[in-house]
Amino acid sequence: MARRGFVRPGLSDWLFLALTLVLSLALLAAGPEARAGAALFLGRTLFLPFRPALAIQPGAPEARREILALRERLARESLEWSTFEETLRENDRLRRLLDFREQETSPLVPAQVVGRSLDRFGESWLIAPGGGAPARPGQAVVSVDGLVGCVYAADGGFGNVRTLRNGALQVSAMLSGTRHAGMLHWQPLAGGLVLTGIPMHVPVRRGDEVMTSGYGGIFPKGIAVGEVVSTGDDSTSLVKRVVVRPRTDFAETEEVFLLGN
C-alpha cells in the first residue's frame, strides 16, 4: 500500500539538489565561449558513438548514398535556379550590367541533422558534416527547399545551427518582386517568421516570394526563404510587418547543406 501524506525533504534531498544547482550555476557563470565549448564537447562525446548508426540505414547503404547525392544535386539545382532567376531580374532592371560576371554558386557540403532542440523559446540543431569537412561559425545552412539557418558554434566536426525558428537569428531578406529588403526574425507572438522594415507604401501580397538579400555577408543573395502569408502594420505604423511561411519543413528535414566551406 502507498504511504500517504507529505514527506518533508531530508538533508540528503537538499544536499543533492544543492549539488546540481551549484554545478549548473558554475556552467552558467562560465563565459559564452567556455559554455559553447563544453556543450559541443559533451554533444560530440555523446553522439559520436551513435553517428554510424544514425548515418547508415541497415541493408540499404547504396540507396542512402544515392539519395544523399540526389538531394545534394537537387539543392544545388535549386540554389542555381534561384540565382538564375535573380540574375534575370537584375539584367532586366540593369541593362547596362548585361555583361556582369555570372554569380558563382558556393560549394555545398552535405551534413546530417543528429540532434534537435525543440526548445519552445528558440530552435537549434546539432549537425555532422560529411566527408570530414568541419563546420565553421557563420556558415549558412540550406536544405533542398531553402534557407535553414546559420552555424553559430562548431567543434570537432559538429556544428550547432540556429534555425530560422530561433529568435536569436536575424536574416536580411527581401521581397523578390518589389526588391525591398528588411530584417527577418522569429517572433512567435507575431505569428512566426516576421519580415520587418518594409515601408507601408510597398504592395505586399499573399504568396509573394521572400529571399535572402545578401546584405550582411553571411547569407548569399537569392536563397529562397519562404512566402508571404499575411501582412500588418508595425506598432510604429511606419513599416509593414510581413509574416512569412518558411519553405523548409523543419520537422522533416534530416539532411542539410553548408554553404561556402
Binding site: 501524506g5 507529505f6 525533504p9 546540481t20 549548473s24 552558467l28 559554455r35 537549434s124 550547432n160
Partner: peptide
C-alpha cells in the same frame, strides 16, 4: 548540448521539476 548559448540553464531548472514531482510522490 543543443543550446550552447544557455548551457546549464535547463540543468538548473529541471532538477527543481524532479524535486517538486518527488515531493508529491506520497
Amino acid at each position: 548540448c543543443l543550446e550552447p548559448e544557455w548551457f546549464g540553464l535547463e540543468a538548473l531548472l529541471l532538477p527543481w521539476v524532479g524535486f517538486a514531482a518527488g515531493s508529491t510522490s506520497n
